[in-house]
Design a protein around this nucleic acid. Sequence first.
DNA 1: CCATTAAATTCAA
DNA 2: TTGAATTTAATGG
Length: 250
Amino acid sequence: MPNTTNILLKNSRKVITDFSCASCMNEDCLIKKNLNNITNSAFVENKKTLKCKKGQQFIIEGAPVNGLFFILKGTVKVFRTGINGREQIVRFAKEGEIIGHRGFGTEEYYSIGAIALKDTVLCYISKKDLQEALLENPKFGYDMMLFYANELNRSESKVKSISQMTVRERVIDTLLYISRKFGDLNGFLNLPLSRKEYADYAGTTEEQVIRVFSMLKKEELISAKGKKIGIPDIQVLKNEISEHNYYLDT
DNA sequence: CCATTAAATTCAA
DNA sequence: TTGAATTTAATGG
């Protein structure tokens, strides 16, 4: 195999040598799902792959938008920085998700930043190539539309939760979100986040999160070992915020 | 919010 | 694998 770059992902211990869509294993990827419908092969061929180390920022707020990122492997947080330097985490994204999609249409500059939470592999596709593929492939376009609709729904729910829920409820809501999205591993949430990151997502401060966590621990609703958070009974937590939960998911 | 201490992670030998 | 160095959590002012 000449010319193939080998990369070693710390967490998977698996060497990936081939990033082409044809051999991609990621069934959640919208591109992969629609690969057999996509006739214009330039689309797939022009795709760039880039790897990010943990903690590396690959989208900077205010930078011009030239394309979109698809996560091939890894986890990413997307955020916006507020007026006083405070970070508001917009969402966490994992394999198969799209980053930077808001800038796709008419926006010229990113209004968000994104950084890798672990070593991550991204597929980068130029606006132009994606536009062409979408125009000639209705199914692909429809799937993309569903994705946008979901994101919109979630972000609308988030506005409500931040304005109407108490701190405790927002923290619980955040825990449930992480649990739904990333699941459990050995009884702990499968995504280690700092208290600050919980706070930035829930719209509070690190101290508040720490205090809520302490209370929840006393009530035995959660367990915590450093960054690893365990939820013994998800249902109990759900009940506590059930009045707010007319909607759901992702 | 900040300062202090305890605890957990990382890193390199 | 260990422990020293660094980062992060928890508490109280």
